[in-house]
Amino acid sequence: MTSAVPEAMTVKEVMAALRLSRSKVYDLLRSRELPSFTIGRLRRFDTADVTAYMRKRVEENH
């Protein structure tokens, strides 16, 4: 049996995926709208969390 490892995104990848500035991504972190984790000094985002955030925003605007 194999277990799937969640894919992690960098801040730059989240910026590109959401078409947001670096400061806006960090605003989402501070407001806890977009969860992340750190490995040492590196911040990473679970791809599923970024996708869930996008879906939530789309649903709010419809």
Rank of each mutant, 00 (worst) to 15 (best):
S3F: 08
L29N: 05
T10V: 02
R57P: 02
M15I: 00
S3P: 08
V14C: 01
V14D: 02
A4E: 08
A4F: 07
D49V: 04
V50G: 01
A8F: 05
R22N: 13
V25W: 00
R44P: 01
V14T: 00
P6V: 10
P6K: 03
K12A: 15
K56I: 05
R55G: 12
K56W: 06
M9V: 01
S3E: 11
M15T: 01
R55S: 14
S31T: 08
S23N: 09
D27Y: 12
Y53Q: 04
A16M: 09
V58D: 12
A8T: 06
E13R: 02
R22D: 06
S23Y: 04
I39K: 04
E33L: 08
F45Y: 04
A4H: 10
S31P: 00
L20A: 10
K56S: 13
K24M: 10
K24L: 09
T38C: 09
D27H: 15
E60N: 15
K12P: 00
I39N: 07
L42R: 11
D27A: 12
L18V: 09
K24S: 12
V50I: 02
S21E: 14
S3M: 13
T47G: 13
R43I: 06
T38H: 06
M9F: 03
A52M: 04
K12H: 06
L18H: 02
R22H: 08
I39L: 15
T10C: 02
F37R: 10
T38V: 05
D27T: 07
V50L: 03
M15Q: 15
A16D: 14
L34D: 01
T51K: 15
R30H: 11
A4Y: 11
V11K: 00
A17D: 08
E33T: 01
E60C: 12
L42K: 12
M54E: 11
S31Y: 06
V25D: 00
V25K: 02
E60Q: 15
R30Y: 08
H62P: 02
K24D: 04
R57E: 09
F37C: 05
R57M: 12
E60M: 15
R32I: 02
L42Q: 09
S3T: 10
A17Q: 13
D46Q: 09
K56T: 14
Y26W: 13
D27R: 13
S21C: 08
T2D: 07
A52V: 07
A4C: 08
V5K: 13
L18N: 03
V5Y: 05
T38N: 12
A52R: 14
G40N: 07
Y26S: 03
D49Y: 03
L20I: 04
R55M: 12
V5G: 05
E7A: 11
V58M: 14
R44T: 01
R30I: 05
M54C: 10
G40W: 05
T38M: 13
R32H: 10
L18D: 07
Y53N: 03
S23T: 12
R43Q: 08
E7H: 06
E7L: 09
H62G: 15
N61G: 08
E33I: 01
L34M: 05
R44I: 03
M1L: 15
V11Y: 00
E7P: 00
Y26V: 03
T2R: 12
E60Y: 13
L28S: 05
M1A: 14
E33Y: 04
V5T: 13
